[in-house]
Design a protein around this nucleic acid. Sequence first.
DNA 1: AAGAAAGCCGAAATCGTTTTCTAGAAGAAA
DNA 2: TTTCTTCTAGAAAACGATTTCGGCTTTCTT
Lengths: 368, 368
Amino acid sequence: MTVQWLCYNRSETFRGEQAQHKSMARRHNIDGRPTIAQIARIAGVSVPTVSKVLNGRADVSLPTREKVERIIEEYGFVRNRAARALRKGKTGLVDLLLPRLDDEYYLPILEGVAQVLRDAGLRLVLTATDYKSEEEVRWIATVTDHSTDGILVMLPSERAIEQLERAGLPFVLIHNQGGLQAMAPSVRITSWEGGFVATTHLIRLGHRRIAYIGKTSPARDAIERIAGYRAALDAAGLPLMPELECDGDFTEASGYQATLRLLELPEPPTAIFAGNDRQAAGVYRALHERGLAVPDQMSVVGFDNLPYTEIMNPPLTTIHAPRLELGRTAATMLLRLINGEQLEMPRVVLPTHLVERQSCSPPRQQQE
Amino acid sequence: MTVQWLCYNRSETFRGEQAQHKSMARRHNIDGRPTIAQIARIAGVSVPTVSKVLNGRADVSLPTREKVERIIEEYGFVRNRAARALRKGKTGLVDLLLPRLDDEYYLPILEGVAQVLRDAGLRLVLTATDYKSEEEVRWIATVTDHSTDGILVMLPSERAIEQLERAGLPFVLIHNQGGLQAMAPSVRITSWEGGFVATTHLIRLGHRRIAYIGKTSPARDAIERIAGYRAALDAAGLPLMPELECDGDFTEASGYQATLRLLELPEPPTAIFAGNDRQAAGVYRALHERGLAVPDQMSVVGFDNLPYTEIMNPPLTTIHAPRLELGRTAATMLLRLINGEQLEMPRVVLPTHLVERQSCSPPRQQQE
DNA sequence: AAGAAAGCCGAAATCGTTTTCTAGAAGAAA
DNA sequence: TTTCTTCTAGAAAACGATTTCGGCTTTCTT
């Protein structure tokens, strides 16, 4: 685990401050957290005046401002956010809905969102649906209660989008599956192009029999990837080989099983485009079990560029999916929406690119 | 990427409902979201009655209740959470502070927290400090504004803990560094025992020269791990070998570099306890570069049991850190605290255990 | 049939902040 | 001195829900 050295400050300072707060509180009969009203009373001014100081308004004289600021500091006063949210109609919170949390794929997206939000002074409310529509429904009901200023949804269902549009809150879709909500603000990646580039890379190396794993998923991204694969074959004048298009649900296990089946073919492929990195890991495992070397006896390309592809053995050539940017872009767009601005580009597609490492080489002997 | 098939419902239903809402709203001159007052007016009852229906109070007659419920349903009314939070003093939100997001180590912890919170109907506010104390200070100020009901802090600094105690909000520490705040509620893992067990495992296999990587970190967990390592050597009657205790900041790169240095020793170790899995990955890379086979020429043990250790080649023997349970336990404790209950066990330590895979074997030739 | 108890419902206060809007004071212009 | 601005500061009304408490009907007791 990555344990790092956090800043250890002298606690003495804070002890002191704490004591000071205590005594002040006692002196003025303050029980729990002070409110604006209490601060006002202590400072000998009115409530709106304190509020003005808090909000940096101009119509407060310097002496008054300083006095109030001193009291605020002394008592460690913090505004009650609920009251503020109620009055202003803004909560300073943004919702992010993910299908699941135990998937490192989403991590950089989450991070990108968090970065942008933090810079904007907003906070992130995270919810995972576990792909359960029941959860999704529950979440949708809860999300429209004005507890957040805007919503980011990953891989939304049609139903979720409908609800969102109805609620009238700003939202941005990440990895939208496409479909009916063509005009909703969304951010995606060029999955088709990624599939095309990955396959073309293998073709250029001389491969003629190239397998693809991940045919089954009906998700938009998966469909695009296999379409890119087929287009690349087609563009190179190569025939489609249905026996080389394997089922796969984008898990390590399915990559493993698909590879075993491929190896049992009378004429196995010389390269495998694994659909995603997790399946590529399964491909590696199967190949290793069968004693086949990567890339000498089989070239492998992944998709996503997960962190561990760098430390795979050999390091995996893969398509980089710009996930951090995905998160940053979506969050930036949402911020605009929350500010009431128009999006000149409501539907953004972020480019993927090939990351060459060491899992590909020309085939041992050319086919034909 | 793991794209899965989300539930696609017929959107017709929702179109219909939406239209219905619209017309209703028009009929009663409702602009944006309806409030309790508007619902009350439409239903011909008073505001408190609607509130009672919403909260399932008993003193509402069945016909009234049904009428109100119908109106609520028809207008798609949702309570404004800010108003509710202000009045009740509870926000339904819990804060989780992580050092950083781009580290998959934290993922299961996050997931555990999310699970428990979701079951309790609370929502999770996520903040990352990036180890910057500036961020931490900003966060601490923002966290005490009653925008959440409780706080979970990972790897807290002393300063953060002081602030937390002062704020008077319920909080639980995860991976507390120890130190002064001995009595604050916290959850940790048995790092010492993990180090002991990992080392003992290697000793039992017959290893006598066992290296440890990760000496430098002053973090509590790191200190415990190396202490466990030393204790195991001691318990087995083996001498400590300072030249085999390597620096390491728990990154892949430091594991790599430490291994290269170890291999240059006049008498290299026969086994490496890598401190964590990331360093173990670096060890693998260095060994592979030098043409040394795992486990035949070098045994390796990791720590944490990150997901990718299973697909390493060979699969890594490591110490399992129960991170999901860490998150679940911390969240459960916090929930108790929020409910005003006492914690019979405020300081919980969760056990680690050895996960044997294929990166360890007896040394080729016994030393001495 | 009178009084008590129970069941329903609503008026009003409240949570803590922000936002007018107005009143007074001070200073400037005449 | 009078009048007109310009500053400051505060009173009062939101924001949208919950909660307390009292009044009005019923129904039940005796």
